[in-house]
């Protein structure tokens, strides 16, 4: 796969993930650029990975963590993850996400939005598969019960 193909296929996915995690449009762009720069530099590795999407998001996650550490930026609270200009659906999502801690929210994002497996998410986040599974189980139960409460 050429860099152009990789970029065309995964730019949305990286941007969406970073936008989910951050509230700062400049920082999102910066990390997106660093991610694709790293992807370009090790493009040959892309052939050997099981899932190119998981590989690229792992890079994006590392870049994000590096950035947050360097800049001593705190990951924005979950209720600030969604941008300022909110549509009614954003508000609902905001409510959903405010039920969870940051890691659980990322796991839920990975499972439902990007359709990753627990194994892939463990690789991306650098945590054991068992932790991903138990966090996913608890978070899903919590969200279902929240949703049930809202609907009643």
């Amino acid at each position: 796969m050429s860099f152009d193909e990789v970029y065309a296929r995964y730019a949305d996915c990286v941007y969406s993930f970073l936008r989910f995690k951050l509230n700062d449009e400049y920082l999102i762009e910066e990390i997106m650029q660093e991610t694709f720069l790293a992807v370009y530099r090790s493009l040959d590795k892309c052939k050997n990975v099981q899932s190119a999407k998981a590989w690229i998001l792992t890079i994006a996650h590392h870049k994000l963590v590096d950035h947050l550490r360097r800049a001593k930026h705190k990951e924005v609270a979950l209720d600030q993850n969604i941008r300022v200009e909110e549509s009614p659906s954003d508000l609902t999502i905001k409510e959903i996400l405010s039920q969870l801690d940051a890691v659980s929210a990322t796991i839920i994002y990975g499972l439902y939005v990007e359709q990753f497996t627990c194994e892939e998410l463990a690789g991306i986040l650098g945590i054991p598969v068992g932790t991903v599974k138990s966090k996913a189980y608890t978070a899903r139960a919590r969200l279902r019960s929240w949703l049930k409460g809202v609907e009643q």
Partner: peptide
Amino acid sequence: LAKMLTAVKASPPQTVAARVYFN
């Protein structure tokens, strides 16, 4: 839940996508 969560998905503005690609 899935329907609500997939609404989070976003695409970069064209200018951002083009700038990152160019850089």
